[in-house]
């Protein structure tokens, strides 16, 4: 199989990898493959984002950048609301962005929605990553490991929320960028930077069960203010970050997703392979060649890692299971 490039064995390989991705999540409780055993721990943390409270000050954007040593500039510049003209997504420059939508109930109070990684309970990015560079932890976070990542960008495709982004400006060792739930700060007993700075406490940090309870009580007490939907409570099997809103979430830039978690997504990818096989082959084989040349040049001294990858290719099943 090593040098065999006929379509049958290629198909076999793809199938194996994709099926494994699905398998990882479906059986993670027993096998503990890409995630620790207790990713659904009762104590796992989350954040409740109340979009009816958020004022769109974008202080969270500033704090997030600042705490992750990114170019953040002066906080005063963040009151500039002209950025809302465009719908933005988290990028390599910022792990979180705030968008603005009109409010039919009161045009003078537009709805602002903060976007970052949802830290899914069953993350599609984790199951998609074949080298285990993304992991789900018991504290609710999904974190990317720069050492393991091979830059394949599979996670970008898998994530239903289009969160992981690629550092296109860096030719050498480009990174996958996404919110890390302020891992360092939380280890030091601090709140995530965005939660800490939010002037109106639109972001409430707590155990997931508690913030869901709070969210439900809020809806119960203010049926006029909130729609009866906690986004992220059930979507893709639940997410650590959950949202409240006064307007239909699908009109606020949230994707309409089922309650099924990652395997649903992985399956779709697997099916897609056969539906759109031919055109990308040419393009990506060219890209692949270029990428391979780059990788060779940069990582000439990392022969050991390459050897590992070689093994992975020849024996995908056993290799992925060990990760």
């Amino acid at each position: 199989m090593e040098t065999n490039s006929n379509s049958h064995s290629r198909r076999h390989f793809i199938k194996n990898v994709a099926a494994l991705g699905a398998g990882v999540v479906a059986t993670s409780a027993n096998q503990a493959v890409a995630a620790p055993a207790n990713i659904l721990s009762e104590d796992r943390k989350g954040v409740l984002v109340d979009t009816t409270v958020c004022i769109g000050c974008r202080n969270c954007e500033w704090a997030c950048k600042k705490s992750h040593d990114k170019e953040s500039g002066n906080i005063e510049e963040y009151s500039d609301r002209s950025v809302f003209k465009q719908f933005r997504r988290p990028s390599a420059a910022t792990y979180t962005v705030v968008n603005e939508f009109s409010n039919p109930k009161n045009p003078a109070l537009p709805i602002n929605v903060k976007v970052q990684c949802m830290h899914c309970d069953r993350p599609a990015c984790v199951s998609a990553c074949i080298v285990g560079a993304l992991s789900k932890y018991e504290d609710g976070s999904t974190i990317w490991d720069p050492v393991k990542c091979i830059g394949c960008r599979y996670c970008m495709v898998a994530c239903s929320f289009q969160i992981p982004t690629f550092d296109y400006n860096k030719a050498i060792e480009p990174n996958i960028n996404k919110c890390d739930f302020c891992n360092e700060r939380r280890k030091a007993g601090k709140l995530p930077a965005c939660v800490d700075i939010c002037p109106v406490e639109a972001l409430v940090f707590g155990t997931r069960s508690e913030i869901i309870k709070i969210a439900r009580e809020k809806i119960q007490r203010n049926p006029e203010r909130y729609i009866n939907h906690i986004y992220g409570e059930n979507e893709v099997s639940g997410t650590s970050w959950v949202y409240l809103a006064g307007r239909n979430f699908y009109e606020l830039g949230f994707p309409k997703l089922g309650f099924k978690h990652a395997p649903g997504v992985s399956e779709a990818i697997q099916h897609g392979i056969f539906a759109y096989f031919v055109p990308p082959v040419m393009f990506y084989s060219l890209l692949g060649t270029m990428m391979w040349i780059y990788k060779r040049r940069e990582e000439f001294n990392k022969e050991a890692e390459l050897a590992e990858e070689l093994e992975l290719q020849s024996e995908p099943e056993s290799e992925v299971e060990e990760l």
Binding site: V17, C152, R153, P280, Y284
Partner: peptide, 11 residues
């Protein structure tokens, strides 16, 4: 690498 690219594109 080729396979990975393929997967990404098809994905």
């Amino acid at each position: 690498v080729f396979f990975l690219c393929l997967l990404t594109s098809l994905g």
